[in-house]
Structures are given as C-alpha cells and as structure tokens.
Design a protein around this nucleic acid. Structure first.
Lengths: 203, 203
DNA sequence: GCCATAGTGGTACAAGTGTACCAACACCGT
DNA sequence: ACGGTGTTGGTACACTTGTACCACTATGGC
C-alpha cells in the first residue's frame, strides 16, 4: 500500500479544509478564492484544485467538515448534561460550551452561521444545518425532561434557537463580559422558566 | 432647482440599493459584483459607480438602508403589541410579523442575517445590527412587563434572540407549515413560560 | 434660445479569478 | 534497481472583476 503517502496527502487535504473554514468565517462563503485558501493553508495554488474538483466542491466539503467536527463536541456536551441537576447548572454548561469558540476560534463560529445562510441558497447544504440543529435538540431534550419540562422536544428547540440567536447577537457586535453577564443569566432565566420554577428546583 | 432630475436620480439610486439587497440575500454580501447589481436593477454598469464611490460603499449603504427600512416596520409591530392581552396573542403578532418576509421577500430576510455576519467582520456594520436588536428589545419589553414578566428587558432579549434563531432555522432549511405549526406554538410556549403562566393570564 | 450641470451609457484596462495542463518528485511494491 | 503512482508546484489562459474615463443627453434657470 501507499499508506504513508496517502496519510500525508490527507493531512494536506485537512489543512486546506481548515484554511477554507477560517476564510469562510473571515470573508464569507461567497468571497472564497483558491489563491486565498492556498496562501492561508501554506500550499501552492494547484493543491487546492488537486484535492477538490471545483471551488463549490471545496466550500461544500469545508462546511460539511465543520458540521461533523462540531457534532463530536456535541457528544461532550451530552455527557456534561447528564450530570446537571438544576437549571442554573444547565445554563452554565451551555454557556461554557461556547466560550472557547468566542475567542480564537471565532472565525470558525462565524462559519457555522454561514452554513445556515448558505443552506438558504443551496438546498444541498440545508440538510447539514438541519442535522446540526436536530443533534442539539436531541441532546438537550432529555435533561430538560428530567428537570421538569412538560414538552421537552419543543423546549429543547426553543433553547437551541435562543442559544443560536444569542451567540449571533454577540458575534455581530461584541459586548464586554458577554458570556458571564449576559449569556449565562439569560439562559438561566430561560431554562428556569421552561422547567417551571422561579428558582433552582433543588432548593 | 433641478428637483425633477434629482428625484429621478434618487429613484435610480434606490433601485440599485434594492437590487443590491436582493443579491446580498441571494448570493451573499461577499459575492456581490457591480455587473450583477446593474443587471438586477436594470441600469447600465456605470450607474453603480456613479452613485456609489466603491463596492464596499454600495454594500454598506444597502445594508444600512435595509436596517432603516426594517425599523419602520418595528413601529407597526409596537402598535400591534399594545393591543395584546395574552401570551397567545403576543405569539401570534410576532409570528405574523415575519410571515410576509418568509415568502417573496425571503432574500431580504436572508440579507438581514448577512448584516449580523458582516458585523462580525466590519465593526462599522456592527452598530447597525446592534441598533436593530435594541429596537426590538425596546418594543417587546413593555408588553412583556404588562403581561407579568418580572425582568422585561432580559426577557425581551431572550424572545428576540429566540425569534431570530427560529427564523434562521427555517431559512436554512424550509419546513412545511413552519409559521403555524412550529414558530407560533414555540413562541406561545416561550412567552407563557416567561410571564409565568401555564395558560393565558386572561382566563 | 442657451448653457451649465446632473445624469447616462458605452468602453477600456489592469488586476484578479477559476481551472487546465505538465514536468518533476518521492515513495513503495516488486 | 526500477517503474509506476500519488503528489507536488509552476505556469498559462480565457474570463470576470472593480474602476476610470469620456462622449453624450436632457433639463431647468437665465
């Protein structure tokens, strides 16, 4: 076999995908160019056409790749959520989940919203973002039910969309201390309202 | 004066802005080109450079224009909200507010989210989306307080962000009967939870 | 009538674009 | 050692892009 060569090629392919994702966040999906991707990834121009048959292929694969990568972090979120026993803890777990992305990985986070918007234009991408949202809804529904939600599926969708909207609000114009002073209290309030308590049910 | 000439010019300027906005929704802000805008607006290529000094100027003005146009519809929303006396009515008014945009004006709606995303890239645009969100929060806070919300400002922000997230979810992958079967019940549930009743307080 | 001027529309051009092509290269099974 | 195949990187080319430029028209104040 030619395992070693293939592995090296695969690594380069990943580097191109990562660079594409960074640029999607920084410039927008529509402004991607082969040359910009090549420079960001540190590969010659021809490498981008060698691994991807066209520009739209490249962008589509990059966004798919982003969705799949994020899906793995959802597993970690699910694990953390099995431990929570109050709305306040629930809110903290959710808020922490996004904290790392609000820093250096901000461009990646922006690219997630680009996926949604691109889904509005190219139906092939719509499935990606739908799968993404469904994954979060599935993970949030169980803990919500356990905390006392009467309609956990619907409430999970509400929490997920609210979470998305809140993060988008922060992305579109950063606020100091967003995560601690705005996001977490709001999620706390939201979840507490949904599970039917004015304070933590553990009290 | 040269009123008539100026008026005709202004009309053409508006046509260019409208065409730009449509294309921002259809292609994305980064994929806008002078030629595409000119064709969409039905004007010669040179008209786009005559009225706007550069491409980024054109896009910025188009997004600003969209935000200001939307602000006018917020006034109508505010008026409708002064009439509501239950969470269910509140939800209906909100759901109706977006219905028209989900149809033919869908590209315009998409462009609104482009503003947020562009705000993450160009700080000059961040102010626009922040003003936009603040306007909605201000309009929703009063009715929420009247319905029994203990923290109307915070709850208004929650409702606005959730509303944004819900509409984005629909945009990224259309669902049949979204507005009636998904959006309205979810908003109903959300608002009822926030104002602290499991059913309408008027009952 | 006349002319200044806002507006119009055609064209030009350098820079940047996607993509094709091709000569080298490194590695591995034989 | 060797030939082949996956990979590399350089270059070419037709096309699109943003923007500048210019001849032209129509309008309204004089």
């Amino acid at each position: 076999m030619t395992e070693a060569r293939r592995a090296r090629g695969e690594r380069r392919r990943q580097a191109i995908l990562d660079a594409t994702l960074t640029l999607v966040g920084r410039l927008g999906a529509g402004a991607i160019t082969h040359r910009a991707v090549a420079e960001e990834a540190g590969v010659p121009l021809a490498a981008t056409t060698y691994y991807f048959s066209s520009k739209s292929d490249l962008v589509r694969e990059a966004l798919t790749h982003a969705a799949e990568t994020d899906r793995q972090t959802v597993d970690g979120l699910a694990a953390a959520l099995t431990q929570v026993s109050s709305a306040a803890e629930f809110a903290t777990v959710l808020a922490d989940h996004v904290t790392e992305w609000l820093g250096p990985g901000r461009a990646i986070l922006v690219s997630h919203y680009e996926i949604s918007l691109e889904g509005a234009r190219r139906p092939e991408l719509a499935a990606i973002s739908r799968t993404w949202t469904d994954g979060y809804v599935r993970v949030l529904a169980e803990p919500l039910r356990r905390l006392g939600s009467a309609t956990p599926e619907r409430d999970a969708w509400i929490v997920v969309t609210a979470f998305d909207g809140m993060v988008l609000d922060e992305l579109s114009g950063p606020q100091p201390g967003f995560e601690r002073e705005t996001l977490r209290p709001a999620l706390d309030r939201l979840i507490q309202a949904l599970v039917g308590g004015t304070s933590s049910p553990s009290q």
